[in-house]
C-alpha cells in the first residue's frame, strides 16, 4: 500500500497538467493566502482598535471561543446551498468557499491581535505618550511591535484553519490539493487519496514553518524571552 502511494507521488504524469499536483498546489496556496489576506484586512484593524481602547473585548473573547465549536463542514455546505443559486460558473464554488475560509479565519486573527495589544505593558504605553508620541506613533512604534508574537500566533492558527478547510472544500468543487483526497475517494483510489493527504500535511507544515521563520525575522529578540 505504501509503495502504491509512493508510485503515485513519483509519477511525473500526476504532477503536470491543469489538474496536476503543481497546479493544485498553486491553487491551494492562492486561495489560502487570499483568504488570510481578506481575514487580516478585517480582523487586524478591528483587533488593534479593541486592544487599544478595550472597547468590545467581551465580543472578541466569546467570538474566539464560540467559533471553535462551529463545524466548518456544515458551515461550508450552508454557504454553498445559500449562494449556489445566485452564482454561476466557477464563482459558484469559489465564492462561498472563500467566504467561509475568511469567516473562520477572522476569530483567531482577531483574538491574537487583540490579546497582543492588550498585554502590552501599560507602563511602556504610558511612557511612550509621556515622551511625546502621538496616538499613531504609540500604536506603530510600541503597541504593534510588542504585540507581534501574539499577532503571529493568531495568523498561524488562522492559516492552518484555512488550509484544512480549503482541503475539505474540495467536496463542494473547490480546486486545490483537496481534490486528490475527494476525487481519489470517488474512484476508490487509495494511493491518490493518501498521496494527496501527504501533500496537504506537507503543505501545512511547510507554510507554518515559513511563518515561524518570518516571525523570527520580524519579532524583536527583546520579546523572545517573554514569549
Amino acid at each position: 500500500m505504501i509503495s502504491l502511494v509512493g508510485e503515485w507521488l513519483t509519477d511525473p504524469a500526476n504532477w503536470s497538467g491543469a489538474r496536476g499536483i503543481w497546479a493544485q498546489l498553486v491553487t491551494h496556496l492562492q486561495l489560502s493566502f487570499l483568504a488570510l489576506f481578506l481575514a487580516a484586512l478585517i480582523a487586524v484593524p478591528l483587533g488593534l482598535y479593541i486592544g487599544h481602547t478595550g472597547r468590545g473585548r467581551v465580543v472578541v473573547v466569546n467570538l474566539a471561543g464560540g467559533f471553535r465549536a462551529v463545524p466548518s463542514l456544515g458551515v461550508l455546505f450552508i454557504a454553498v446551498l445559500l449562494l449556489l443559486p445566485r452564482l454561476s460558473g466557477e464563482a459558484a464554488f469559489v465564492v462561498p468557499s472563500v467566504i467561509v475560509l475568511v469567516v473562520l479565519a477572522i476569530p483567531p486573527v482577531l483574538s491574537g491581535v487583540y490579546a497582543g495589544v492588550q498585554q502590552v505593558d501599560p507602563a511602556a504605553r504610558d511612557a511612550a505618550r509621556g515622551m511625546g508620541m502621538t496616538g499613531g506613533q504609540v500604536l506603530t512604534q510600541v503597541e504593534i511591535p510588542c504585540a507581534l508574537p501574539l499577532i503571529f500566533s493568531g495568523l498561524r492558527s488562522a492559516m492552518l484553519q484555512i488550509i484544512a478547510t480549503a482541503t475539505i472544500a474540495a467536496v463542494v468543487g473547490l480546486g486545490g490539493l483537496g481534490r486528490f483526497l475527494i476525487d481519489g475517494q470517488a474512484t476508490r483510489d487509495y494511493a491518490e487519496m493518501a498521496g494527496g493527504a501527504l501533500l496537504v500535511a506537507g503543505l501545512a507544515l511547510t507554510v507554518d514553518f515559513v511563518f515561524g521563520l518570518a516571525q523570527r525575522l520580524v519579532v524583536s529578540p527583546g520579546l523572545a524571552r517573554a514569549e
Binding site: 505504501i2 488550509i163 482541503t167 475539505i168 487509495y190 494527496g196 493527504a197 500535511a201 501545512a204 507544515l205
Partner: peptide
C-alpha cells in the same frame, strides 16, 4: 505542535495506511 498542524481530513486518510 507539528501533529496539530496536520489537517484532520488528511490524518483520517493517512491513518488507515
Amino acid at each position: 505542535g507539528l501533529l496539530y498542524t496536520i489537517p484532520s481530513l488528511a490524518l483520517f486518510i493517512l491513518l488507515p495506511g
